[in-house]
Amino acid sequence: MNQFQYVRPAQVPGATKAITNGANTQFLAGGTNLIDLMKMGVVAPEKLVDINNLPLKKIEGNAGGISIGALASNTEVAEHPLIKANYPLLALAINAGASPQLRNMATVGGNLMQRTRCPYFFDTAMPCNKRMPGSGCGALEGYNRMHALFGASDKCIAVNPSDMNVALTALDATVHVSGVKGKRAIKISDFHRLPGQHPELDNTLQKGELITSVDLPASPFNKNVHYLKVRDRTSYAFALVSAAVALNIENNTIQGARLAMGGVAHKPWRLTETEAFLKGKPVSLDVFKQAAQIAMQGAKAYEHNKFKLTLAPNTLLQALKTASGLKA
């Protein structure tokens, strides 16, 4: 780890100013990802702006839904009564991630900013366009078992590792940010990016912008939900594939569906076409099997992740079955 400066402002404007003024400056929240990356030499900020003193911890219900402060811990969100009652999918997804110790430290804002776990990104002795633009993609012809099926580019095939982000995507979250140029709201689907020619950019935040809250709209999707994460061990492992499923079922008919997958793309992978297909359909195994196939349109695998072409639809199918309560 390199030597760095450290400041701890008390208010949002001070924090965004501190970032904007620095050449190589980063916000520090829970530190569960950033500190690891600094230890590995993957990032080497000259200055850390610790935002833990900022008043951004509140979780509040409002008329339209709920607002989650960016500094609320993952545990606080997953355990919050309003989240458990109205957004159980989010609680399930958060609890599928990391370990209790990490969830106690990690924040909602930090989780949105979580970097990929691609081994080439983590090892400074191997090439990675995300870590060092222009150095090449180590994964493209390397060990790409954990890598993307959708939306990848010849520059990067890494995936977003977060579980929380998958649920937030399915639930149509809005990310509120504040910067020296003012405040703005970003739809979650516009927050994370695909790698394209610039894999060094994970998201659409502008320099100095700070996530202040994540808001969720009122949602009918609080009953028939499931988050299924398939991984190499039962806990403390990143998803091979995960599926977030929220269904609004009335009289055995799907009134609406919100679906997203994790571990398959550079951003949480929303399945809008599959959602449209499911709308108005009856709850049945056949329907779910068709949905799982629709979800896979456009998938492209690499040498070591071909299994995901089977695992991803199977995971979605299983999550649909569990969420709907379908037997057999």
Binding site: R117, P119, D232, R233, T234, S235, Y236, A237, F238
Partner: peptide
């Protein structure tokens, strides 16, 4: 993180 020893849940 990436080399998986079994955890209690396994």
């Amino acid at each position: 993180a990436d080399y998986h020893v079994p955890v209690n849940a396994d």
